[in-house]
Design a protein around this nucleic acid. Structure first.
Lengths: 340, 340
DNA sequence: GTGAAAGCGCTAACAT
DNA sequence: ATGTTAGCGCTTTCAC
């Protein structure tokens, strides 16, 4: 292991002062061309890399973003994350990631650990437990300490910060309208995420679309829960009854279970039953029949969130204003709604 | 935004010296109980958090691990990542993540950007392009600079570092043996990742198992490629021929496409065709029929990698030795191989 | 038991 | 055009 090469070392080797070397390397006009070249070449030769920690300490900023994600196995979050990472890197920022695993404590702990000069700001989607308990003190405390936050997808209404969301309500409306256009008369709503803000908005959109179309809202066609086992049991009954002819499933478990059970019961999709699900990632295409989805443009959400945060970090405005960006969804028609 | 509270500030407020405060907060025996308590209480009151950058600079270590992942949308990598994150956090380390997107340049750039005092070491899986070109100079350079590396899954044989791998060869052997036990006579091998080390090992295991069972290796039953479109076309023909009765698919695209096409052709799984795939994540269970898989224990791989790296970081041994850990896989039998 | 001082590696205001 | 100095926030050795 070779000893780290520092400014001091270069200065000594070249018989210069540390500050001359520093200026030469940052191409300062104060330094003569000869010395500048000499220094720059020697530095390259020695593969000199300025120590990040020293720079950060000096500058009082780290060029690092803290990202807190509820669950990286959920392809939506994975996509958003890749968008954040890409946009951040492009602007010279690193990304430190914590996975909250939907736990409030882990989320709080992450913010605590990172908010002492480790990161310049946060991008996060609120943990399920935090939303269930409806506590936002840790977010507010972090903001008070001067660290900006951008929330995406799962947000807290009462926290004053930048937000990037999907228009869940409107997406549901659109999806249900589409099912109706296909001729569905008895449309079910399936949700295992009724404890999340996004789940609730999607459910509301479903009801609204039915009302708009003067269709009855039938409670028997609605499964809203936060427990997958409870869900599975109720779903089995609902599908066995063979009453419904359309499904809006607001999460991946709901849509895939619906298709699985329907196939097992010999119900033909989409002939007898049309299914639209909220889903991201490559898997909806891989199902047989492939699943029509509302895609949320995860990467764009991530990029937008990173953009908003970095804007805030690099503007020195003392009285910041907060934006909420809505990223449009897209209805991707596949075989589960293609009526022949 | 309130001004950051520092040791200096506490010292001033309490009429003490900076060093006394520092020692009091680290519970030094040099400090009297009265002052110690006074300082600790005041610090808690002020919500004092030691500045990480200053500490890092002083200590010449960052308690941060650089993680480079080829593709976070691949559930295997997502699982490994969550294992790394969990184990690292548990030991007080942060994780900075770069996604190489299979690009050699991004991988190299990430290592370059992080190896100047930003991280203490790396955990990574080699980018496809790097494996294809077979270049490992950037890894060797980083090691020479004194930063330890742990490679997982996709490794470079010629780089001398800790490694965590799956026994891909043996897993394939087991899977094929299982298919044979189920009565399969004509077993196909499907691979879209024949450019990766893991893909090659899995293919070799397939051949070996056939030989062990005195079965003929039929080239027509083998699709090895690195292009998905090429793959899809050849697969369509292979399945249409209705000759094969068993499939070992070494990647997710291969296994799911095989099932999709078979279902479309009206071939019954598992009655006429058994399928085993290498896959992680929740989706194999969601397919109809559910897919039997070789699961790679992603989280354990991640945890083991983090453990190995942290061990190296915290041992001061000047002449390190390097371990290669093999994490066992598990054959999960689901409906795609359950013969009634 | 407490404090002064040096130093981690870098930058920048201020000499010369 | 080059160098001196102070300081970012913290730890640690050495005085008192």
């Amino acid at each position: 292991m070779k000893p780290k090469i520092t400014l001091k070392q270069i200065a000594k080797d070249l018989g210069l002062s540390v500050s001359t070397v520093s200026k030469a390397l940052s191409d300062s006009h104060e330094i003569g061309d000869v010395t500048k070249n000499r220094v720059q070449e020697y530095a390259k030769l020695q593969n000199y890399k300025p120590n990040t920690m020293a720079k950060n300490l000096k500058n009082q900023r780290t060029n690092t973003i803290g990202v807190i994600i509820p669950n990286i196995l959920n392809p939506f979050f994975a996509k958003v994350f890749s968008g954040i990472e890409k946009a951040a890197n492009a602007k010279g920022y690193n990304v430190i990631t914590y996975i909250s695993n939907e736990s409030h404590n882990k989320e709080k702990q992450a913010m605590d650990l990172l908010s002492n000069g480790t990161v310049d700001g946060f991008i996060l989607s609120v943990a399920e437990e935090t939303q269930a308990k409806n506590v936002s003190s840790h977010f507010k405390e972090t903001l008070r300490e001067g660290l900006p936050i951008v929330m995406f997808d799962r947000i807290m209404e009462d926290v004053n910060c930048d937000k990037v969301i999907v228009d869940d309500f409107e997406s549901s409306v659109e999806a249900v309208n589409h099912l109706i256009k296909l001729g569905c008369k008895k449309i079910a709503l399936l949700s295992c995420i009724d404890n999340l803000s996004v789940g609730k908005h999607r459910a509301l959109g479903y009801e609204r679309a039915l009302q708009d179309n003067k269709m009855e809202i039938n409670k028997r066609y609605i499964i809203k829960t936060d427990s997958q086992t409870d869900f599975d049991a109720r779903l089995e009954k609902l599908i066995s009854a063979k009453e419904i002819d359309g499904i809006l499933a607001v999460d991946e478990h709901a849509s895939t279970m619906a298709m699985k059970i329907a196939i097992q019961k010999g119900i033909q999709i989409p002939k007898e039953l049309c299914v639209i699900g909220f889903a991201d990632g490559v898997w909806s295409r891989r199902l047989t029949p492939s699943l029509s989805t509302i895609s949320q443009h995860g990467p764009e959400i991530g990029e937008e969130a990173a953009k908003l945060l970095i804007e805030k970090l690099e503007s020195k405005s003392e009285t910041p204003t907060f934006k909420t960006t809505v990223v449009k969804t897209e209805l991707r028609q596949r075989d589960s709604t293609r009526r022949v």
